Amino acid sequence: MSRRLPTGITVLDRRLGGGIPAGSIVLLEAPPASQSELFLYEFTATRGTLYLSTVRSEAAVADAFDRVNTRVGNPTIRDIGSDAPLDHANRLVGALPEEANLIVDVVDVLEQSDSARYRSFLNELQTQIVNTGGIAVLHAMKGRSIPANRDVTEHMADVVFDLQTDVKGQEIVNRLAVPKFRGSAAMDETIKLKLAEQVAVDTSRDIA
């Protein structure tokens, strides 16, 4: 069995048998209006992290880390969302150290690239992550406009986290599904989560 690397999120690590296999690409799909960034922030507490932002500036991401009230690391933050984001990402991915995290927030901007170039990027990313024994997390939005290359991202990902956020009356309900876990059994049920100051299990019962 592949060596597992913890995510920093206790509930996930417990459900996933200790974490995510080293060398994996993880796709985190979430609604734009959700608190999905909490997953990314907690990932950084586990090991050295390169955080590539395609939408927010380096200053905005750093400020978010300063304000969040949960355990976080000290990631290297780079804004690659201006000119030629795919080229910037390629250069930075090629210099990843051993057993590091790579976070791309959000991957939608890269998915808007030419299909052949984007597919080449994913293959190079996979090779680098396997060779360094780290984990890559691609944060993708389930919004009104989904890039055409999203299917390619889902296919290439070794693990898919699908966050569903629903407003039911006065309650916001977050559920995490893991429909894909290459090389192991996927979870057969969702986890109800609280996404407030950190990622935690919601133990309240659903009322039909």
Score class of each variant (00 low, 15 high):
1 M>A: 09
2 S>V: 09
4 R>Q: 14
5 L>I: 15
5 L>N: 10
7 T>N: 10
7 T>F: 15
11 V>P: 09
16 L>I: 02
18 G>F: 02
19 G>I: 03
20 I>S: 08
22 A>Q: 13
24 S>G: 06
24 S>K: 11
28 L>W: 04
28 L>D: 03
29 E>H: 01
30 A>W: 02
30 A>F: 02
32 P>G: 04
35 Q>N: 14
36 S>C: 04
41 Y>E: 08
46 T>I: 06
46 T>Q: 15
47 R>L: 01
49 T>C: 15
52 L>V: 11
58 E>V: 02
59 A>I: 00
62 A>M: 10
64 A>T: 12
64 A>Q: 12
67 R>A: 10
68 V>A: 07
68 V>H: 08
72 V>Y: 01
72 V>E: 01
74 N>L: 13
75 P>D: 01
75 P>G: 05
75 P>Y: 01
77 I>C: 06
79 D>T: 00
80 I>Q: 14
81 G>Q: 07
91 R>V: 11
94 G>H: 03
95 A>I: 00
96 L>F: 07
96 L>H: 10
98 E>R: 15
99 E>P: 10
101 N>K: 00
104 V>K: 09
104 V>R: 06
106 V>D: 15
109 V>S: 12
110 L>S: 06
112 Q>T: 08
113 S>C: 07
116 A>S: 15
116 A>P: 03
120 S>H: 13
122 L>M: 12
126 Q>V: 08
128 Q>N: 07
128 Q>R: 15
129 I>Q: 10
130 V>D: 08
130 V>S: 05
134 G>N: 11
135 I>M: 12
135 I>V: 15
139 H>I: 02
144 R>W: 00
148 A>G: 02
151 D>K: 11
153 T>N: 04
156 M>K: 15
159 V>P: 12
160 V>P: 12
160 V>S: 11
161 F>G: 07
162 D>R: 15
162 D>S: 13
169 G>E: 07
171 E>F: 03
175 R>C: 09
176 L>S: 06
176 L>P: 07
179 P>Y: 01
181 F>I: 04
181 F>Q: 06
181 F>G: 05
183 G>H: 04
187 M>V: 02
187 M>D: 03
188 D>I: 03
188 D>W: 02
189 E>N: 12
191 I>S: 09
195 L>S: 08
197 E>T: 09
197 E>Q: 13
199 V>L: 05
200 A>L: 11
200 A>D: 10
203 T>Y: 13
203 T>D: 13
204 S>M: 05
208 A>V: 06
208 A>R: 06
